[in-house]
């Protein structure tokens, strides 16, 4: 399968393409001669300039979805283009909630397999080879499709840098979704934004995360205080999000955010695979945990074997006294 044309799902949040989409566009440039994007919503004309700057020549605009979740209509629009012979050789999706939905729908619609949790994409022998981190990132699996395209790939955030190429604004072409009837009946009736203060979790230079080792919900205040003192963001392991201690938007890991800060402080986190895949590429990792055998220490540059309830208050006091 030769790869001449790649489509990238350009997910738009607050009027701008998300960083992961720009990362995928950047990588797609090095893999195929033509890079095009798929977008939806009313902001497409205004993001065409940004997408062009990263190398996209054409944006296929599915348009306003009328409150529908994107999974069904966007997959149907891409499938229609493929059926009409105008489709790409590969479609790259960011591993977001909507990206996964659209990729899964498209896979079933086109009867093509999907590769998810991709962390690298390499041109090889005319096709694409993917890499996937498994077993908590201790091993790397390479894979490729053997059948007919288009190849469907779901790629994790921060797998590639996002670098503009200085291209002209992309031209937008309408790619309306065909009628999908009752399958497309789910509607968003209200949106709720959970307010956060300080830097964003996936952009902060310092991330301080807490886990089960905190023992109780109230101890998460230590994580928040430490994050504030370090001008960083507060994160969490899945265990304490599931326990309802902190909102889901704080979750770092497989199903949460992927972070790559200058320093990641894991406090009372054992280091399940679920968590490691979301933070192990941090530039520096500090782990504080009372269990010396916790897997988190295998990725830590500095590991403190100790009780977070003793270490964190002293750390906070020491930072405060520095002013």
């Amino acid at each position: 399968m030769s790869v001449d044309k790649i489509w990238v799902l350009a997910e738009v949040v607050d009027g701008a393409p998300i960083t992961t989409s720009l990362e995928l566009i950047t990588q797609a440039r090095s893999l195929a001669g033509t890079v095009e994007a798929v977008a939806w919503g009313d902001a497409t004309p205004s993001v065409a300039a940004t997408l062009g700057e990263y190398g996209v020549t054409t944006v296929h605009d599915v348009g306003d979805l009328g409150g529908a979740l994107p999974g069904v209509p966007v997959a149907a629009a891409i499938a229609a283009a493929v059926a009409a012979g105008a489709g790409p050789d590969a479609v790259l999706f960011p591993a977001t909630y909507d990206g996964r939905d659209i990729a899964g729908r498209l896979s079933a619609k086109l009867d093509r397999p999907v590769l998810t949790n991709v962390v690298d994409l390499i041109a090889d022998d005319g096709g694409l080879v993917t890499q996937h981190a498994i077993f908590g990132g201790t091993q790397v699996v390479s894979a490729r499709f053997t059948g007919e395209g288009p190849g469907i790939y779901v790629v994790r955030a921060k797998s590639f840098p996002a670098e503009p190429s200085g291209g002209a604004p992309a031209s937008a072409v309408a790619a309306p979704a065909p009628d999908t009837g009752a399958t497309n009946a789910a509607r968003i009736v209200a949106r709720h934004v959970e307010e956060r203060t300080g830097p964003k979790l996936d952009e902060a230079a310092v991330v301080v995360s807490g886990g089960r080792g905190l023992g109780e919900r109230d101890s998460y205040a230590l994580i928040e205080e430490l994050a504030t003192l370090l001008r960083g963001a507060a994160g969490a392991s899945r265990a304490i999000v599931d326990a309802g201690w902190v909102p889901y938007s704080h979750q770092v890991g497989q199903t949460g955010k992927t972070v790559k800060p200058t320093v990641y402080l894991a406090c009372g986190i054992s280091g399940a695979t679920q968590h490691l895949v979301g933070m192990k590429n941090s530039k520096n990792i500090v782990a504080i945990n009372k269990d010396a055998d916790a897997p988190i220490f295998s990725v830590a540059d500095l590991g403190i074997v100790g009780d977070v309830h003793k270490v964190l208050p002293k750390l906070i006091d020491a930072l405060k006294s520095r002013g």
Binding site: T146, G147, I304
Partner: peptide, 28 residues
């Protein structure tokens, strides 16, 4: 689809481990 290769990931260099005896926060 096929798996073409399984390899060990580039291992992080072994870190420093400090057992907290009251001064662990200083090392942080």
């Amino acid at each position: 689809q096929e798996i073409t290769q399984v390899a060990d990931a580039e291992a992080r260099a072994a870190g420093e481990i400090v057992v907290d005896e009251g001064e662990g926060h200083q090392r942080v």
